[in-house]
């Protein structure tokens, strides 16, 4: 077409190359990290995957959920039950866990046909409450308040007890999820999600079936959450239901808002921010010689403050700053 779009394409190609380098780099680095570093990396990667799912629903289709940790929980306990109790192999267990989470997600997505905005938030709030109550009650599945152990699986003959090996499984799912997400956004369903978010009435006139499109968004989004939950269960090994509480759901929502709504980079950057910021603040507090007791409130306060500052000065999220930076660097280099 023209120059502007050529430049646009080469920036996109640059991003793709960067993503490949990032994945390879992280994959290699993960084999050499210390235990605590690897733990952080694993949680970031799992949250990034869950973040993609929530971003598809909230950022792309415009349907807000504060129940995504509960959907992760559905995936986590489903996979644990399938693999540990029923002896289903690990990979089918993960995919089935995603499927079960999607089925539950569809059920709790039904109100979205009638409810919008804050009212939909309240509907997802009740989904969180109901599912969490179920986790508390279903001791045969979750261990209730005591939690349960989940032994790490053997996948394709490889024992994943070792954290660095297990991480490669997590990374593989995150990469598959990222590729699928990026592809979805640029094709027919991605446009339909955007249409439903931006102007449901016009979407309908363009031939978008609102019911099917919203339900599809819920199913895909909660499938991601379910898979992320399954991976989280095996990472934790000892799974407490608190890992899927309302607080975590809201953290996930904060993740996509701060990272950048509706973008892949947003899910990844948001996960980095959500996981690393408290760690860095703790490190800083230690350096300043604070005691553990004093640290927690200060950390939470500063963390909250950072979120507010972000919303004020970069309402489109870190992905927007990141894109500005990479585009700028790219143009500098290509000149």
């Amino acid at each position: 077409m023209n120059l502007e779009s050529d430049r646009y394409r080469s920036v996109k190609a640059g991003n793709r190359l960067g993503a490949v380098v990032l994945v390879l780099g992280v994959g290699i680095a993960s084999q050499f990290l210390s235990g605590s570093q690897l733990a952080l990396l694993t949680v970031i990667t799992i949250y990034a995957l869950a973040g993609m799912g929530l971003n598809l629903l909230t950022g792309n289709a415009g349907l807000i959920s504060i129940a995504h940790a509960a959907f992760m929980g559905v995936g986590a306990f489903s996979a644990a039950y399938l693999n540990v109790n029923l002896g289903v192999p690990a990979l089918p267990s993960i995919l089935l866990a995603g499927g079960i989470a999607a089925a539950v997600g569809l059920l709790f997505g039904l109100p979205s046909l009638r409810l919008k905005g804050v009212y939909l938030v309240m509907a997802s709030f009740s989904a969180q409450i109901i599912l969490f109550w179920f986790f508390e009650q279903a001791r045969w599945l979750t261990g209730g308040e005591d939690g349960r152990f989940v032994e790490r699986p053997i996948v394709l003959g490889i024992d994943l007890q070792e954290g660095s090996r297990y991480y490669l499984l997590v990374l593989a799912f995150a990469v598959l999820g990222a590729v699928a997400y990026a592809n979805l956004l640029r094709t027919r369903m991605g446009r339909a999600f955007a249409a439903v978010r931006e102007n449901p009435r016009a979407a309908e006139i363009m031939g978008v079936n609102l019911f099917r499109t919203k339900m599809t968004a819920f199913a895909v989004s909660t499938f991601y959450a379910g898979v992320a939950g399954a991976l989280m269960a095996w990472y934790l090994e000892f799974v407490a239901i608190q890992a899927f509480s309302l607080f975590i759901s809201i953290q996930l929502l904060a993740l996509v808002i701060i990272g950048g709504l509706g973008t892949l980079a947003g899910a990844v950057l948001g996960a980095l921010f959500i996981v690393l910021t408290p760690e860095l603040l703790d490190g800083l507090a230690l350096q300043l010689g604070m005691e553990t007791g004093q640290m927690a409130p200060v950390r939470q306060g500063i963390f909250g403050l950072l979120i507010v500052i972000f919303l004020l000065y970069e309402p489109h999220g870190m992905a927007r700053s990141w894109r500005r930076l990479t585009t700028y660097l790219f143009l500098k280099i290509s000149k």
Partner: peptide, 19 residues
Amino acid sequence: MAGGHHRLKSGILRGALYW
């Protein structure tokens, strides 16, 4: 391109498997 929504067939899977 949204105007072509009804003429295309691809759903989630064919979209995710783009290439």
